[in-house]
Amino acid sequence: MNYKFAAADMDGTLLNDENEITPYTVEIIQRAVSQGLIFSICTGRPIQGVERYQEQLGIQGPVITYNGAMILDSADGRVLYKQELEADDARLILEAGLSYDTTMCIWSDNKLYGNKLNDRIQEYSKATKITPLLLPSTGQLLAQGITKILWYDEISKIQQIEKELRETAHFHTVTFCTSKPFYLEFFSSKVSKATAIDRIGEIYGFTQVETIAIGDGFNDLSMIRHAALGAAMGNAPDRVKECADYITTRTNNQDGVAEVLEKFIL
């Protein structure tokens, strides 16, 4: 198969546990791109959390952020596509977060807002180097538009909240899932990492049968299932591995992304 596009998740996939891309993986990605591959970072992070890695890769092209809710061109920062949460849904998520007394990290207009400026949101903001702002009035934030909401709490509490929301939530067009055991993310169900790949294909001229997706988390399942070749990292949970066409023998600490590109591109 002649693959033209590959998307790789960041945390637990492209990045090792020190939040770095190894020089070896950078080299393999650059070699694959030099042979015509379009390579895209695909993450739940905002663009601010991607920029230094994109610079390290030294390549240009589409970048998938907010789990597919926003796609940007790394060459000039142009927004190629965006889809925010419906206002009614965003309001329900904010109200539920307050009732659960959880820490909410809210992305609006590429700015980070929080209902609490506590240690959790400060820790979360380190990856993006953005100073979080205290949540203004709900009406003001809804008027700006909300791209993504993330709840950050104890793992046991996040598990319980997710279970309860699966049974009782009355959202209209919302997808929610854990990206890390202590993160519960909410974004429009009109978007996903899989949908983002299709959007990029429309712009760059490739089809689903020419795509590779590499990930390790439950928020990567849509693209792993959708791509012609869905690859799960060796460190992925079993439920993610079960949905993959290929499982790397290496983990994110052992250049697992490079393994996929070496085997199927180079």
Score class of each variant (00 low, 15 high):
Gln160Pro: 00
Met104Thr: 05
Asp153Leu: 10
Lys193Asp: 03
Ser222Trp: 02
Leu37Met: 09
Gly44Ala: 05
Asp216Thr: 10
Ser108Lys: 07
Val63Asp: 01
Phe206Lys: 13
Arg166Met: 13
Asn67Leu: 04
Glu259His: 03
Ala196Leu: 08
Ala90Gly: 05
Ala258Leu: 03
Gln30Lys: 13
Ala8Asp: 01
Cys105Gly: 09
Asp101Arg: 15
Gln208Tyr: 05
Glu18Gly: 03
Tyr66Leu: 10
Thr173Gly: 01
Met10Ala: 10
Thr147Pro: 00
Thr25Ala: 08
Asp76Glu: 08
Leu94Asn: 03
Met1Thr: 14
Phe182Thr: 11
Phe182Ile: 11
Leu57Lys: 05
Arg250Lys: 15
Cys177Asp: 06
Ala194Trp: 08
Gly44His: 07
Ala236Cys: 01
Arg250Tyr: 13
Ser192Thr: 05
Asn252Tyr: 08
Ala244Asp: 02
Thr178Ile: 08
Leu135Phe: 08
Gly145Cys: 06
Gly77Lys: 01
Leu266His: 00
Leu80Pro: 00
Glu242Phe: 03
Tyr152Ser: 10
Lys190Cys: 07
Leu165Phe: 11
Ala194Lys: 09
Lys163Thr: 15
Asn219Lys: 07
Asn19Val: 13
Asp9Gln: 07
Ile59Gln: 04
Leu85Trp: 00
Arg239Cys: 06
Asn19Asp: 12
Thr248Trp: 06
Ile28Phe: 02
Tyr81Phe: 14
Asn252Lys: 13
Gly205Glu: 05
Cys105Met: 13
Pro23Gln: 12
Ile29Gly: 01
Tyr246Val: 08
Lys163Glu: 13
Asn118Gly: 07
Ser189Gln: 09
Asp216Asn: 14
Leu266Val: 07
Gly49Tyr: 00
Thr102Asn: 04
Leu112Ile: 09
Gln60Arg: 14
Ile28Ala: 10
Lys157Ile: 13
Leu141Asn: 04
Ser156Val: 15
Thr131Gln: 10
Leu37Asn: 04
Leu261Ser: 01
Gly215Cys: 07
Gln254Glu: 15
Thr128Trp: 06
Ile155Pro: 00
Gln144Leu: 11
Lys148Phe: 01
Ser40Val: 02
Thr147Tyr: 00
Gly201His: 03
Asp216Met: 12
Ile41Lys: 02
Phe264Gln: 01
Asp255Arg: 12
Tyr24Lys: 15
Phe176Tyr: 11
Asp9Thr: 05
Thr195His: 14
Phe218Cys: 12
Ile265Trp: 00
Val240Thr: 04
Ser74His: 07
Ala96Leu: 14
Tyr24Val: 14
Pro181Asn: 10
Ala69Asp: 06
Leu94Lys: 04
Leu150Val: 14
Ile214Gln: 06
